[in-house]
């Protein structure tokens, strides 16, 4: 392990959500891209103040949910009806899963027994959607991860209590050791710290 350190960025503290909000507006207007606010709870409207666009997660979930609906439809129609053989000319599908359509209560074996399949189609839609929410979210935010350079800062732990922090990362093209610090001071930051990470 070398003694070399890499600058991660500036971590600055604010007294409350209001100061953080206004500071975020200025940092956004100053044209920074790679920076973030760290707060104990989601501050409403901060997305706009930071210039963060809406999450794409609902789109992922829509397709995840549709996958669930189709899965349930196919599962039930293949195993319970002759729909794929008689109407779609795909009898091999039924052979593939070796099914004998269960005839109970003299319900039809065609597509017209479909309403009986709605509950399972509904449940699998919800189930697949919920899994897409969880894993889609993790993919979008890049978690879980075991460590992060910000955890080297003692002050950073305050974010989960009552700290309102802004971190401007060094990899931002506009980042300058002095200029960024000046901006943070100007927008009312307290305890500005240069966070360095072991290489």
């Amino acid at each position: 392990m070398s003694n070399l350190k890499r600058v991660h960025g500036y971590l600055a503290e604010f007294d409350n959500a209001q100061d953080l909000y206004h500071a975020a507006e200025h940092i956004r207007d100053a044209g920074y891209q790679r920076w973030d606010c760290h707060t104990p709870f989601p501050v409403h409207g901060l997305d706009g103040a930071m210039g963060v666009s809406r999450s794409k997660l609902p789109w992922l979930v829509f397709f995840g949910g549709m996958t669930g609906t189709i899965t349930a439809f196919v599962l039930q129609t293949i195993t319970q009806t002759n729909f794929w053989r008689d109407n779609m000319g795909m009898g091999f599908l039924q052979k593939l899963v070796e099914t004998y359509p269960t005839v109970v209560q003299s319900k039809p074996t065609g597509i017209w027994t479909l309403p009986a399949f709605f509950p399972v189609m509904f449940e699998l839609t919800i189930l697949f959607s919920a899994f897409t929410v969880l894993f889609g979210l993790l993919a979008l935010i890049g978690l879980p991860r075991l460590n992060h350079p910000l955890f080297t800062s003692k002050k950073f732990a305050k974010f989960s209590d009552d700290g309102f922090l802004i971190c401007i990362e060094a990899r931002d093209p506009k980042f300058a050791q002095q200029g960024t610090r000046d901006l943070l001071e100007k927008v009312g930051a307290k305890n500005i710290e240069l966070v360095e990470d072991d290489i």
Binding site: D36, H38, T39, P42, V43, L57, V133, L137, L143, P144
Partner: peptide, 27 residues
Amino acid sequence: LGWRGSNRHWSHYETAYMLLAALSTPL
């Protein structure tokens, strides 16, 4: 999960929470 309270994360997180609420309601 290495949560950092990042607002870029909160933004997706709140959407996810809303979606789960919307899914759980009919469920």
